[in-house]
Simulated scan of single mutants.
Amino acid sequence: MVRNYKRKSNRGNYGNNNLSLALKLLNEGKPLNTVSKEYGIPARTLRRHRDHKVQNPGRLQFGRHRQIFPEEVEKELKQHITEMERRMFGLTSKNLRRLAFDVAQKAGYDHPFNKETRMAGEDWLKSFLERNGLSLRQPQSTSMARIVGFNRPKVDQFFDLLRSIFANADYDSPKIWNMDEAALTTVQKPSKIMAEKGIRQVGKVTSAERGELVTFICAMNAAGGYLPPLYVFPRKRMVDVLMKGSPPGSVGYVTESGWSDG
């Protein structure tokens, strides 16, 4: 006959607050076993924290990883990261790892960071990003002219002009349009294919090796209406076959550069 015995555990659901209160009672002279039963904390755990045999007495730590910086320091790091991103000078992962090492060194925090590379580890970076709701993103290239032109006086000037236009005329949603243009490549990017090992070069048929960009212009109003797209091809003469497969009503034009010039 086989019997299944369940091992009784003395471990209760306690947090840092209960642990701190239990240690306070121990320091006041209350018996260890009494405090252990009252707060549901194992006597061995209380003894280790009381005798300072842990790195942070009175504070729970699960796993081998520990938080290097206090919460207020991590909040300052997060604020610095978001401010740099908004100023178009976002930090890379290596920038942040070097910054974490410098902060830990100058503030005198006990840390396991690499002193040869003078950077925090990738495991610290991953944990820091998860704790603070951050992630690595691929930024879009933004010219210096656009950054300099996007400032408070220019934005205020734009909205003042827009407000005066709406005050002089009654524009409803079908009369408010937005137009934008994008570039389309004429060469598709081939996907990975199966090939024999050891071959130095593998090819796949495309329309060309180096494609040219075709300008694609769209317009849509605030009511949800839209105009058929307009294509600008980098050619001298327009050929009807270029519009094959385009949406109904599309329009095609040509310029030598392929850019919209009028």
Rank of each mutant, 00 (worst) to 15 (best):
G149E: 08
V2S: 06
L46M: 06
K106D: 13
G258Y: 01
D123C: 04
L125F: 15
G108N: 09
L161I: 13
D51S: 11
M84R: 15
R146D: 10
R163I: 15
R235Y: 04
P139Q: 02
S173Y: 14
R146G: 07
L125V: 07
V73G: 01
R87S: 14
A222M: 12
L227R: 00
P57S: 04
Q61E: 12
H80W: 02
D172V: 12
N95H: 09
A208Q: 06
G15C: 09
M220A: 07
N132G: 09
A183L: 08
A120D: 06
V187L: 04
M144V: 13
E256A: 04
L21T: 08
A167D: 15
T186S: 15
Y226L: 04
L91I: 02
G203N: 01
A195T: 13
H65T: 03
K236H: 08
S173T: 14
F113T: 03
R3T: 11
K175W: 09
Y14W: 07
W177S: 07
R235N: 01
R66A: 03
K175S: 14
K115G: 09
N4A: 09
N18F: 03
P139E: 05
K126V: 02
N132F: 09
T34Y: 05
L213V: 13
E212D: 11
F113D: 02
E85F: 00
L25F: 05
A120L: 01
N13W: 09
I81F: 00
G12Y: 04
S207D: 10
